[in-house]
Design a binder for these strands. Structure first.
Lengths: 108, 108
DNA sequence: CAGTCAGATTGACAGTTGTCAATGAAAGCT
DNA sequence: AGCTTTCATTGACAACTGTCAATCTGACTG
């Protein structure tokens, strides 16, 4: 069994004891997922493929600054990516990052 | 495509917009995973199969009340299960729960 | 029964987080 | 240039969270 160096492709909770660096990194990702508004935001982005911020306020029932806060948290965790086009910022998923986090919870 | 009722077996962020109930439930699970000490605790339990609380203080570098706090959070999220045998509480994973949370992050 | 040991609970405190109103910044329109 | 729209940033505040010292509860031991 490979030692878990903290730099590998797939740190997993169930494979080998996590290093501090790995657990910090993973905890950051899970923290981004640990809010119901952000989870619904994520599912809206997933459902529509691409969404601009202004289309999130109504379905999520939060103010514009709050939406901006949540998109930033998700983006900093690498789970979504924003692309500015004209006046709009278009948000989309980062599937690889989601897959990495998912794999951290155990064998596929 | 099935509507997401909030009572199904596998609410998923990437399948259909989450209901508020689903996102609350999921966020609770992710919040339990959103701490590096708890992630390392989880990986220790996974590595050894069964662990008693007293064996967690040293590797995690936290006091006994803090360990007790973290095991409680993980247990309330359904991710680990504690069984009292004599003076010790033995902790083990709940694989089904881990799988459910994992599946919430997308298709297998 | 008195003592010890594993673990839970309580209380306190500092640090973090979700929220919104107000403001700022950049792009497009007239 | 001036106005509007879209989003980001700042500041403030209440709520929550991780941590430990102190204490309490049970279970075993002698």
């Amino acid at each position: 069994m490979e030692p878990n160096t903290g730099e590998g492709c797939c740190a997993s909770v169930t494979e080998a004891p996590l290093t501090e660096a790995e657990s910090d990194e993973l905890a950051h990702a899970f923290a981004a997922l640990a809010d119901p508004v952000r989870l619904r935001l994520l599912s809206l982005v997933a459902a529509r493929g691409e969404v601009c911020s202004c289309d999130l306020e109504a379905p999520l029932g939060r103010s514009q600054p709050t939406i901006s806060h949540h998109t930033r948290v998700l983006a900093e965790a690498g789970l979504i990516r924003g692309e500015k086009r004209g006046r709009w910022t278009w948000w989309s998923l980062v599937p690889d990052r989601l897959a990495t986090v998912r794999r951290a919870l155990g064998p596929v």
